[in-house]
Amino acid sequence: MCVVSVEKARGLQTACTTPVAEGMIVETESEAACETRQFVLEMLLTDHPNDCMTCEVNGDCKLQDLVYDYGVEWPEPNGRRHVYPIDPDPNPFVFIDLNKCILCSRCVRACEEIQNRDVWSFAFRGFETKLVAGTDQPMLDARCESCGQCVAYCPVGALYDKMSVGLGRPNQVEKVRTTCSYCGVGCNFDLNVRNGEIVRVTSAEDAPVNGMALCVKGRYGYDYVHHRDRLTRPLVRAKWLPDVEERVTEGEWTLVEVAEKRAEPTVSGNGAIAGDAFIETDWGTALDVVAGKFAKEKQAQGGDAFSVFASAKCTNEENYLFSKFTRQVLGTNSIDHCARL
């Protein structure tokens, strides 16, 4: 696709390798160059499934764009096509459909030159040329570290994020740029949001630290935010609450069984709620319990009664507020976090 016409040169030249020379006249959209591109595209289509309607990358596919831009018609299906199994690789991250692979080698180069992991390569030759991991092994056996760089660079739907299959195509999602919540490298990426759910993480080319690169946690470790274990209401031990039985009976609060390892039952034989049972309450109640207890302790013991564990996972602004709260309101400097751990 990179061929261009250069005046006085014989045939078409590859734009990516031909050095520029003084006085050189290059025509990028010459008739010959366009015809060759059309031919290349049509050749690729003769061995490509015509399934854009159901393809994950519909609307975000370089092949589709080029076919459109160069006005290529879909060729009659006539001749040999590759039939590869779809999603044959047991790894949980990268979805493979080699039927869509155009052998552009971007994944090979991304893995070799950027990720330096050399998982992908081409095997066999001619029409039989095929993208393989390692010695035609499952990706994880071929030293793949699941960074998803190959997916990020795939121009078509041959490599895709397995966790995101069927959850939303590019025009159906909203992209929100953010910074990763795992290690301290500070990678930026785009959260792909659809109907209030994170359906995919995609690389952001202009990310200042990481560019297109991400690691397995950053790219594929986002689904914890939707985990059913997420806490959704404050929990308070029954012993700190007034009128527990009544308000639980009324359905205002709920007795919860979050503490699986608890030794004693939360409800005794006569239906009384044990003092250390967790009750799901409302914010007002929970905050009042905490503020009340803290105020009481401060009055009795002063600031030394408190210690605060701040968090390396919270934002700068939040940490500032924790510090302010500890020092200004609780009256102690005993705030620390797991910087050392």
């Binding site: 953010t178 910074t179 806490l231 929990l235 929970a286």
Partner: peptide
């Protein structure tokens, strides 16, 4: 005694500072 449900990083605004002292949104 009390467990308070917090929001995750995708549910709030703010900044993080990375290991090279870079402040990002």
């Amino acid at each position: 005694d009390v467990v308070l449900p917090a929001a995750s990083f995708v549910e709030k605004e703010g900044t993080f500072t990375n290991t090279e002292r870079r402040i990002q949104r």
